[in-house]
Simulated scan of single mutants.
Amino acid sequence: MNDLPLADLDAFAAVARERSFRTAARKRGVSASALSEALRRLEARLGVRLLNRTTRSVTATEAGMRLLERLSPALGEIAGALDQAASERDKPAGTLRLNVPTIVARVILPPIIGRFLKAHPAISLEVVAEDGFIDVLAAGFDAGVRYEERLEKDMIAIPIGPRVQRYVTAAAPDYLAKHGEPQHPRDLLEHTTIRHRFQNGIALAWEFGEGAAAITVAPPPTVLANAIDLEISAAVGGLGVIRSFEEFLLPEIKAGRLVPILEAWVTSFPGPFLYYAGRRHLPAPLRAFVDFLKAEQRHSERYGMFP
């Protein structure tokens, strides 16, 4: 008897307490016939009558009264447990695990997670920053952040951070004074450069412009690294031309340690996206983060700015 359907036991208790199929059905939002069928199944499984039914009344039998007395506390405990589980939607807790590119970890994510964690103090955050391309779910992450061309097609993606970013080119004043300023991307083939190599060993060529007007060059590097701090330091030290996210180079440009060049060839592209599997029931921390990002996106659209 340990495999008695919980729904049938709950239906019996509801009818026994209300002493009416119709009243119990109305309160539960089901039909009276559904409750009657549930009771029929339960009595058949137990081999005993639990309710006496007439056209005018429904009353529990002696066996039904004993069952109701034992059953009510257990059903109450179950209802309380379900209510507590449902309350996690309003007060989510747990750990949110994200895999993000370096640019996102350094520039985009910090102000966002500051606001998010203050709004959800019961959530903790684990972030791994890497520029490689991995299966985030297989690696144990709840979600990842990537740019549009790297999004997996079977995932759900929502914007995170600025909707437009730029790639810019720069060099140190001393380097330009010594080697001259390139006027066209192809001129970079005659210059030394500082280029980025991803963790998988790939060093992408530099692409300037968009569409049919795009130009791709792969100038010889003086420094080839996967550490942006080292790359920026090398550029500031006059070792060559650097091309990277504007957010990385802007502090050095503002300080005068780097000078923007090839400004007619600045490349704009869509900002990053948070992506995750399209499961119906997301982990509570991820659901809270998704809802938070959507609210911030609505705010930015309403006021014409990224918050």
Rank of each mutant, 00 (worst) to 15 (best):
268 S>R: 14
268 S>L: 15
268 S>I: 08
268 S>H: 14
268 S>M: 13
268 S>P: 11
269 F>M: 12
269 F>N: 12
270 P>I: 13
270 P>Y: 14
270 P>N: 13
270 P>A: 13
271 G>T: 08
271 G>E: 09
271 G>W: 13
272 P>A: 15
272 P>I: 04
272 P>Y: 11
272 P>K: 06
273 F>Q: 09
273 F>H: 14
273 F>M: 15
274 L>M: 11
274 L>W: 05
274 L>V: 07
274 L>H: 10
275 Y>C: 07
275 Y>S: 05
275 Y>K: 02
275 Y>F: 15
275 Y>E: 12
276 Y>I: 07
276 Y>M: 05
277 A>V: 10
277 A>T: 08
277 A>L: 11
278 G>Q: 06
278 G>Y: 07
278 G>M: 11
279 R>F: 10
279 R>H: 12
279 R>S: 01
279 R>E: 09
280 R>Q: 10
280 R>C: 02
280 R>I: 01
280 R>F: 03
280 R>S: 06
281 H>E: 13
281 H>S: 13
281 H>M: 11
281 H>K: 14
281 H>C: 06
282 L>P: 00
282 L>N: 02
282 L>F: 07
283 P>D: 04
283 P>E: 05
284 A>F: 07
284 A>S: 09
284 A>R: 02
284 A>N: 08
285 P>V: 01
285 P>T: 02
285 P>A: 08
285 P>R: 00
285 P>G: 00
286 L>H: 01
286 L>K: 00
286 L>S: 04
287 R>I: 00
287 R>P: 00
288 A>R: 01
288 A>L: 07
288 A>S: 08
288 A>P: 02
288 A>N: 05
289 F>A: 01
289 F>W: 02
290 V>C: 08
290 V>K: 04
290 V>I: 15
291 D>F: 02
291 D>T: 10
291 D>M: 11
291 D>Q: 12
292 F>L: 01
292 F>P: 00
292 F>D: 02
293 L>Y: 04
293 L>E: 03
293 L>I: 08
293 L>M: 10
293 L>N: 02
294 K>D: 13
294 K>A: 14
295 A>P: 06
295 A>C: 01
295 A>N: 11
295 A>W: 03
296 E>F: 02
296 E>S: 04
296 E>D: 12
297 Q>Y: 08
297 Q>L: 14
297 Q>R: 14
298 R>N: 10
298 R>L: 14
298 R>H: 12
298 R>Q: 12
298 R>D: 12
298 R>V: 14
298 R>W: 09
298 R>G: 02
298 R>Y: 02
299 H>V: 12
299 H>T: 07
299 H>L: 15
299 H>N: 08
300 S>P: 03
300 S>Y: 04
301 E>G: 07
301 E>S: 05
301 E>C: 03
301 E>R: 09
301 E>F: 08
301 E>L: 15
302 R>V: 05
303 Y>C: 03
303 Y>F: 13
303 Y>Q: 10
303 Y>W: 13
303 Y>D: 07
304 G>H: 04
304 G>C: 11
304 G>P: 01
305 M>K: 10
305 M>V: 12
305 M>A: 09
305 M>T: 15
306 F>Q: 10
306 F>M: 05
306 F>Y: 06
306 F>W: 10
306 F>H: 06
307 P>A: 07
307 P>N: 03
